[in-house]
């Protein structure tokens, strides 16, 4: 399986100290909770230390490490085992929390971590593209969300009013 090879490479990168941790987000993360649906790439949220004397975090060490292992950089992605993989540093408190609280699992023995369903929904709501709204509806329809946990996350990250708008627009006719 190609995704397992991707995860093995990222785990090796973590063991080698390039990143301090990671979790799968985006459509592949959503697949942990939902039925699989086609996606173009794999979103990996990574934690790593800022360089000495700098508060800026850069994914450059990841690109250097992986290209050094024979993988190809293509724009914002690194191609690993045929999959374009995008490495995303957490850009705000919500993604930082999602990374810290991600769920540990494994793929045929390869350990990995996946964002909680409630964090995936909150991030999708924050991002707000049409495909994000569709994914939120999938989560609601699948009945996999912990309503109390989601409400808490949305409230703490200033997304409660956006959720109300989402409910009014998309969930108004649900029984």
């Amino acid at each position: 399986m190609q995704v397992k090879k991707v995860l093995a490479e990222i785990n090796q990168m973590q063991r080698d100290g390039v990143i301090t941790g990671y979790a799968i987000g985006g459509a592949v993360g959503a697949t942990f909770y939902l039925e699989p649906s086609a996606t173009l790439d794999i979103d990996i949220f990574v934690g790593f230390e800022a360089g000495p004397g700098s508060r800026l975090i850069s994914p450059q060490p990841i690109y250097d490490y992986l290209t050094g292992r024979g993988h190809t950089a293509r724009g914002e992605h690194i191609e690993i085992a045929g999959w374009p993989v995008q490495f995303l540093p957490p850009t705000g408190p919500l993604a930082e929390e999602a990374l810290a609280e991600a769920c540990a699992t494994d793929v045929d023995g390869e350990p990995t971590r996946v964002f909680l369903a409630e964090h995936l929904v909150a991030i999708a709501l924050e991002t707000g593209r049409t495909k994000d709204m569709a994914r939120i509806l999938q989560f609601v329809d699948a009945g996999v969300l912990d309503a109390d946990k989601l409400e808490d996350i949305l409230a703490r990250h200033g997304l409660a009013s956006r959720w109300t708008s989402f409910e009014q627009r998309f969930l108004g006719d649900l029984p």
């Binding site: 399986m1 397992k4 592949v28 942990f32 939902l34 699989p36 045929g82 699992t105 045929d108």
Partner: peptide, 24 residues
């Protein structure tokens, strides 16, 4: 069918993603 796919193990779902990507 959606419920059946949702209930699959994560590894099996990722295999399906591989297949969907190859097909695309």
């Amino acid at each position: 069918e959606r419920a059946r796919l949702t209930a699959l193990p994560f590894a099996r779902k990722l295999e399906i993603l591989d297949q969907l990507r190859a097909r695309s």
